[in-house]
Structures are given as C-alpha cells and as structure tokens.
C-alpha cells in the first residue's frame, strides 16, 4: 500500500465532516410500556430499544453483547415474541408491550425457566442469561404454536420438543461460557411445567 492510504468512509476522513443537509438529531417524545409499566421518555430517534431499556429506563437486565443481532444477549419479548432489542429502534415500539427479564418473575416467585436455570446451572458469567431466558420463553410459545424449525423432520407436521429442537431454536443465543448442555436441560425441564 502506498504511503498516505486513502480512507473510504467514516471515521477519519475529511469527507466525514457533516454534510450541509444532515439533519440535527431528532428528539422524540415516546411512551414505552415495559413489564406492564408505562414510561414517558424523550429520546434521540437513534435510540435502540435496548439502549432505551438500559440507559433511559434503568432496566439493565437486558444485555448488550454485540449490538448487531449476532449474540442474542439483548433478547426481549415484544407482544410475546422474542426479538433482538439491539436491532430495533425504541420509536418503533410505541404502544407495544415489552417484557424484559425483570418482568418474568411474579413477585418473589421465579418464572419456571429462571428457576430451572439455577437448578441446572444454565449459566456461568450470567451475561447472556437474561437473553437466554427471554429467548426460551418466546421459543416455547413458538413451539406450542406448532412452528417448525430447521431440524424438524416434517415441517408440515408438528414436532416434539426434543433436545435437538431446543438446541436449534435456541441457537440465536450465544453463551461463551458454554453452559449450553445445562441450558438445554433447564429448558427441557421447565418446558413441562405450567408456564
């Protein structure tokens, strides 16, 4: 490469300077409903649902592992469906019911998935855990609704929730401590209980 390497975008190139037509950051008034509670916020339109939860509402149970939908640590339930909260804007969820890991227990009583994670040691460092747990809750609802997965032999039929099914359906949640076998055991165990 020749001296004085060119740059091809941001940052660090004079062309990265703001263009005249760049809009100023937009502040949006916004009401988010999280774990049954309403929060009136004024947020930069760029704020992701994840950052709104963590930095503005103070619910830090939902984790930022990669911020690009590549690890699953930020998984929350929106209208009962599991999604990556890092890849969606808070503004897109006005009026939606958001459930985070903090909203799963009923008072002192842990959600069966939470209890099973403790019993089966389904975590080590705990950082992916809220995402794993929310994902498991959403995943079990999908399975109950009869959704097939990549490993379902007959996608037109219904699949029993085997370990292989759990593994495939939970693959969007990375665990670097690699508590995977224990997570699967916990989900298998809790899947049988009344959720």
């Amino acid at each position: 490469m020749a001296a004085g390497a060119a740059s091809f975008g941001w940052p660090g190139h004079p062309s990265a300077a703001p263009a005249p037509d760049d809009p100023a950051p937009q502040m949006l008034p916004l009401r988010l409903t999280v774990n049954g509670r309403g929060h009136d916020l004024r947020l930069d339109s760029r704020t992701t649902l994840l950052d709104a939860l963590r930095e503005h509402i103070g619910l830090t149970g939902t984790k930022k592992g990669c911020d690009h939908g590549q690890c699953g640590a930020c998984t929350v339930l929106v209208e009962g469906r599991r999604i990556n909260s890092c890849l969606t804007l808070a503004a897109m969820h006005e009026g939606d019911a958001v459930t985070t890991v903090e909203g799963l227990a009923k008072g002192e009583a842990l959600h069966p998935i939470q209890a099973a994670f403790i019993a089966h040691d389904g975590f080590q460092c705990g950082y992916c855990t809220p995402g794993q747990i929310c994902s498991a809750v959403g995943m079990l609802a999908e399975a109950r609704a009869g959704w097939p997965s990549h490993v379902t032999a007959d996608i037109a039929g219904t699949a029993a929730l085997s370990d292989a099914e759990i593994r495939e359906r939970m693959s969007g949640n990375l665990c670097r401590c690699s508590a995977y076998p224990n997570i699967v055991a916990a989900i298998r165990d809790a899947a049988g209980s009344d959720l």
Binding site: T75, I83, N84, P148, A156, S171, G172
Partner: peptide, 28 residues
C-alpha cells in the same frame, strides 16, 4: 415459515427461511 400452506406446498421456502438467521431475527 410457519404458515400452513407454505409448510405444505412451498416447503423449499419454509425450509430456506428456517435455515436462516435465528428465531429472534426471523421474528422481526
């Protein structure tokens, strides 16, 4: 991917969708 007709009559599409990304991403 979960739509009954897609699963029964457009299996290649259901299978391709299910092979992609993750449960969370497919939900969105």
């Amino acid at each position: 991917a979960a739509h009954p007709r897609v699963r029964k009559e457009y299996g290649v599409l259901a299978k391709a969708l299910l092979a992609g990304a993750s449960g969370q991403l497919r939900n969105k």
